[in-house]
Design a protein around this nucleic acid. Sequence first.
DNA 1: AAATGTGAATGCTTTCACAGCA
DNA 2: TGCTGTGAAAGCATTCACATTT
Lengths: 222, 222
Amino acid sequence: MKTSNKAAKGKQSLDQVSELTTNRLSLYLRCLNVLEGAGEQTVSSRSLAEKFHLNAAQIRKDLAYFGEFGVRGVGYYVGDLKRHLRQILGLDRKLRVAIIGAGNLGLALADYPGFRQEGFEIAVLFDTLREKVGQTSRGGVPIHDVADLTTLTRCDGIQIAVIAVPEAAAQHVLNLVVAAGIRAILNFSPGTLDVPPGVKLKSVDLTVSLESLSFFLAQGEG
Amino acid sequence: MKTSNKAAKGKQSLDQVSELTTNRLSLYLRCLNVLEGAGEQTVSSRSLAEKFHLNAAQIRKDLAYFGEFGVRGVGYYVGDLKRHLRQILGLDRKLRVAIIGAGNLGLALADYPGFRQEGFEIAVLFDTLREKVGQTSRGGVPIHDVADLTTLTRCDGIQIAVIAVPEAAAQHVLNLVVAAGIRAILNFSPGTLDVPPGVKLKSVDLTVSLESLSFFLAQGEG
DNA sequence: AAATGTGAATGCTTTCACAGCA
DNA sequence: TGCTGTGAAAGCATTCACATTT
């Protein structure tokens, strides 16, 4: 690279970076947290790769999309790279999250410690059931009526919605959430959902995950 | 294709089929369930693609790895293809599942209706906490002591394990599960896990999923 | 000497486009 | 005619290998 301004490179072409790459940035960040906890000052792509079953060239290429964060002959400064990754991933601010569906899964997600750890704040749960509205999750996340979703997410500054409702309600809930101005959605319900352009939907499909294990077992028997 | 024996093709080379393909088989199966519910007898790759936002050529190619299931000029018979997919995915038998970790997430997964739907049977939960052992989930899945994992999974014929324990315990639990003879594991804990060869580990990383949404939002702002 | 950043090469996946069959 | 099954082409992603820098 020839530019003197670190991290300036490629900012025009950031939407060309694939999701595979950005997902790995999250993993790298997690690894760096471990290394920092162990008191490591610097790390090379090679040692990072060896410790966490990754590929060194891939680490370097992934990072290089976003800037020159390393020092030749040395490696990467752990704290420095962590900071850069958190900034790239948008984790250098608190992100407020709403979960729609206060069933078993929604409640579990609301109290999932992994989310809070990296700076997400699960601010509110929504449900339609009378007996749930007004309650809180074990961890203290309040449950509101879905009817109040639009107004509440607006004034609460919610930026991410998690859909944890039964399949039949998912598209309706998604429409509500989008209408409320939310543009990033994590979906746990199965089935096909329509999203308008400009809105990012990421789906976690538990059934597909289990069935891929079933396929593996079925093959082993032949 | 020239072979007259349907579905016989490629059985030697089935491990060459990528996981991207097999994951899509699960999606196709789900779509077929919808179509069958709507009373459709046949479906073409084109109409399947249009209805569920898929690619027609990809559907055909995915299916063709496993046999000739379609009829030229007609399409696929819904019930017939469903049966084939269930067989390919190993869903033509009950699969017994154990969940390790009876915390919020483990309990939610134990009662998740989507699993039972396609023939999985969540047979047992495991935990280390005295006060949990002996209880059941809301849906009635019994909670046993992790100490009994090996004997219980053996005589219960458990084939799939779900890891829903805190990060610090995950590798230990994975080792136990593998030692008990289980070769297919769905993992919800973050971090790197070592698996011996011949064992399939599929990880669902909730933090990575949320962070990819954070990245999307951060880009939109520039 | 050591490790980055990166073109070039390889390997995978998706899409195209059409021969061939019902 | 309509649609599958499938080579060939195009498009992505990963890995290699090395010039370059500290």
